[in-house]
Write a protein that binds this DNA or RNA. Sequence first.
DNA 1: CAGGTTCGTTGGATGGACCAAGGGATTGCC
DNA 2: GGCAATCCCTTGGTCCATCCAACGAACCTG
Lengths: 143, 143
Amino acid sequence: MEMNEVPTLLRGKPSWLINRASARAHRLVGETMAAAGGRAYHFAILAALDEFGPDSQVQIGQRCGIDQSDMNTMLNELVNKGHVARSPDPADRRRNLVTLTAAGRRRLKHLDTRLTGAQDEILDALSASERDTLTGLLTRILG
Amino acid sequence: MEMNEVPTLLRGKPSWLINRASARAHRLVGETMAAAGGRAYHFAILAALDEFGPDSQVQIGQRCGIDQSDMNTMLNELVNKGHVARSPDPADRRRNLVTLTAAGRRRLKHLDTRLTGAQDEILDALSASERDTLTGLLTRILG
DNA sequence: CAGGTTCGTTGGATGGACCAAGGGATTGCC
DNA sequence: GGCAATCCCTTGGTCCATCCAACGAACCTG
């Protein structure tokens, strides 16, 4: 979306800036992941499994901020690609234990490098220290 | 969405932080505007008209980052409420000249105070100077 | 005056986030 | 032990913002 002079009243609103930045980042990340044959959600799920080990679907969802029903869809895709295994938990048969496969761990590394590259593109105008302060401020907003 | 420990690989990605912050801000702004009987887009359009004067629909769209078709919908709403007038431009009969009414100008002020209040809520955790640096960094990203 | 372009309008496609209900399994309470 | 409440997964949607395509009317350029 090409944009001319933005109204001052609008330009000064952090919510508007954040929204615009998010649209940009979201599109870029989406394209990057699509080019790698995946989605942003896939990366999030694989990262959670890698860091915290096998887990139930709701747990993973709570860690990554993904809805139960969406989690189900994403896991179908990941199981289909062999990046994740879904098996009933013998200790609690309500749950599915989701585990990262070897291929999934490789996949995670691959997506991570792609995603890190996208970050560079998004934050192109900022220096390294500025990027740090930005992530710091955003993290505190979310706290 | 309640969230537990976020995976480190995810937490460190600015794109993810921006996206999360945007979701928060977007929801809050949406609720604020809805409570006032309007939308975020309404504020943007009114602000553009107030600052740059009467204009065509595409021009307003380019200033605010709004699609032509969506602009049409929004203007229908604004005309309906009497905040904006849409009349054919005598100088170029393809165009509609959109002008801000007196009620529209009052409306803009009203929405602005509401929206400014929402910003305070969004940036609650940050000091005034931190808010400035955040908006500065975001503005440069969008540059 | 003919071809390319702009503007508004209509209609629809897309994707992310969210919500609701139900069945199976488990836990807690009495 | 049994009944109620709770949890987990799955299915099947809704809602909203964004975006795209195509058309007729009007304009501009050569």
